[in-house]
Amino acid sequence: MELEVKSVAPPTTFRLMNLQKKMRFKEQAIEGVLFLVGVLTIFITLSIVFVLGNEALLFFEDPEVTLAEFLGSTKWAPAIGEFGIWALVSATLTTSVIALAVAVPLGLSAAIYLSEYASLRVRSILKPILEILAGIPTVVYGYFALMFVTPLLRSVVGNQIGVYNMLSAGLVMGIMILPLMSSMSEDALNAVPNSLREAAYALGSTRFEAALQVVVPAAFSGIGAAIIVGVSRAVGETMIVAIASGATSKFTFNPLEAAETMTAHIARISGGDLSYNSIDYNSLFAIALMLFLVTLVLNLLSQWIVKRFREQYE
């Protein structure tokens, strides 16, 4: 039998050995466009800062407003020219503290159970439930707070709780933040190398002792980052408080009372008929600027912690 050697094509013969870099315009144009798209995201942040800062500046330039009053007073009543942010901050703080008091212990416990105890099967049932909770829009949580949790509280505690109150909003906000808290904590716990657990077991520790005294402390910074993100979520959450915690600004830390948070105030005022360039309009941007700055600092902090934590076990 004769071999068909010719069936294999000969190599291309290059006359010139030209391996110089070529300008590939299409390639460069594409890279340029993609780069611009990436840079565009920075402009979003810049425009947030610019818009909020600009309008807030107009607010503070108004003769009725002083920065000292804004940051020092506890009365917020735009109708009579009172702009003390503490009246709104107090409600934001109260609802956030309640929310975290729910979300941090529950979320962390859930994470410990999922990462240290649950079998694959139990996990595959419980984890999706948390994911469903995480996917429910906050307006639905608001309905739940007003229509279910508040009546429940009122039937348990009695009618000293108003129809609108910070307790119910805070509790439901805690449930809303729980999945985030638990999934971030679980990531942190899973990042703890198994060798530490084995070391603990080999010393004769129970699963619980290893989990709570070795794994959790080792994941501490990751858990801290989760808590910080939780705080930022709670401070920025709008719909639950807008629906369930009341529509009057009031300086109070009593969770049984109704009071309006920073976010709920923005939502209520801007939802109505609001004329541009009024002091009310500008005041909303001053509040939003505060919100933005607080959450920005919190987010940066948690990212920094997560990054350091990741390096620790690499």
Partner: peptide
């Protein structure tokens, strides 16, 4: 990463 954590109400103001 930061933009992902900005409260949605701030986007509303923007």
């Amino acid at each position: 990463n930061n933009l992902a954590g900005v409260p949605s109400i701030v986007y509303g103001m923007l």
